[in-house]
Simulated assay, not measured.
Amino acid sequence: MPRLDERQRGVLRATVTPLASIFGSGFLIIVPVLERTTGAWSPLAIAGVCALAWVVGSVVRHVVREVEPRLAAGDLGRAARRLERGSDVVIVVAYVISVALYLRIMAEYIVEGLGLSSPLERERAIAVVAIVAIVVLGVRRGFTGLDFVDRVALGSVLLLVVLLSAYLLVHDVGLVAAGDWPRPPPTGASAIEIVLVLGGILITVQGFETVRFLGDEFDAETRIWASRLAQIVASVVYIGFVVLATPLMGTSVGESPDATLLDLVARLAAFLVLPLVLVGTLSQLAAAVADTAAAEGNLHGLGRAFRGPRAILISGVVAAALAATMPLFSIIAVASRAFALYYALQCLVALSTTKSRWRRVGLIVLALALVGITVFARPVG
């Protein structure tokens, strides 16, 4: 077996962060969310969402290659610098909302997996306690040295994906052999409603932009290849998993998306329910820690007023307030809106270093579409 060279090893190391972020953002909720939105059309829907994410990811990679050097050299126009500064503010907001989202998903898995009573109150309480714990950890010792948590979480998620996919494949092959291929029931949503809701789940494929913040560890080309690889792997996994899960959609719809996924796993392979809860808890906690650290780091860069523990305290208070007061589906939509606005601003920043007329037109169209998601995206249900 050929050995990897230093460049390839660096790409693999750099891939961990964006790939763990993408899976942390959406793997645990994507099937039930599509079940409620697109039903039998879910494979096409997730393919469309992944395609949009790839196009946006190409913009982020352009910014890494073309904009970052000019920004460091002070050779970027005033308007582009202001847009980049504005995007720094927006991404902080997006990451803070993501922390609330990840920990609400984590709490829901714990509550549903253990069958606790008063689920909504317990979910909110667990999420807030987890946020407090992360803030205390960040203030007392910081988040350096926790990279291994991302690696463990990513490995656990990938292992679970393989097991679930294998069982889904066996189940689907059995349906074909028996001449029975159930179609999920219609969701009753119109085409416009589906588009608006799909815009509201952009968060499920978010994470490829994290390469923007790994510049101290990896050079531009390593980060660009890591972003590509992360998106390819995530797209293959998402599309494949949704295709295999579609025949089970609509057979047992619970009150919350994660309960639906747990019900699906319970019907398919009951012994995987506990591993799903454990992996869900680990992956969401790791993603929340990573995004808290990212929000803190970006806040530090916005001015002296956010230096020291003040940045993480602000992030924690806002995330706790969101986790304690907002429905899960609403947090998903709000997070998607925040990331869509960040990506739209990145499109406008990229315009300053793009000479091709058609690419400029494409960036403007993409920016308008992302602004549309920011304004009109809807929560599921």
Rank of each mutant, 00 (worst) to 15 (best):
R141Y: 13
V132L: 12
L163H: 01
I131G: 04
I134D: 02
I131V: 11
D147A: 15
G142L: 10
A153D: 07
D147H: 14
V161I: 08
A133E: 05
G155V: 09
L160W: 01
R151M: 03
G142P: 05
G145C: 11
L158K: 03
G145S: 08
F148Q: 06
L159N: 04
L164T: 02
V149M: 12
L158A: 09
V149D: 02
A133W: 06
G138L: 05
F143S: 11
L137R: 03
I131A: 04
L154I: 08
L159H: 01
R140P: 08
G138A: 03
V161A: 02
V135G: 13
L160F: 05
V139G: 08
L146R: 03
L164Q: 04
G142I: 15
L160D: 00
T144F: 11
V139R: 11
L163F: 06
L164G: 00
V157I: 11
G145E: 04
L160R: 00
I131K: 12
D147K: 10
L164E: 07
V157S: 07
G142H: 10
I134P: 06
G138S: 08
S156V: 00
G145H: 06
G145R: 09
S156H: 02
D150N: 15
V161W: 00
D147N: 14
V152W: 13
T144K: 09
V149I: 15
V132K: 00
V132M: 02
V149P: 02
V136N: 09
L158C: 03
R140M: 11
L154T: 12
F143A: 11
V149N: 06
V157K: 14
S156E: 01
S156T: 02
V132R: 01
D150V: 10
R140Y: 07
L146Q: 01
D150C: 14
A133Y: 09
L154A: 04
I134K: 00
L160Q: 02
I131P: 14
G142V: 14
L158W: 07
F143V: 13
L158V: 15
A153T: 01
G138H: 13
I134H: 07
V136Q: 07
L159R: 02
F143H: 12
F148W: 15
D150T: 09
R141C: 05
G138V: 07
V136L: 12
G142E: 15
L146C: 10
V152A: 12
F143K: 07
L158I: 09
R141P: 04
G142A: 14
R140T: 15
L163C: 06
L159K: 03
F148V: 15
F148D: 11
L137W: 05
L160V: 06
L137A: 11
V149K: 13
V149G: 04
L163K: 06
R151I: 03
A133F: 07
L163S: 07
G142T: 08
L154M: 05
S156C: 08
F143T: 08
V162Y: 04
V139I: 15
R140S: 10
V161D: 00
V136A: 14
F143R: 08
V149C: 06
A133M: 07
R151P: 08
A133Q: 00
D147V: 09
A153H: 02
L154Y: 10
I131R: 11
R140C: 14
L164N: 02
A153W: 13
L146E: 08
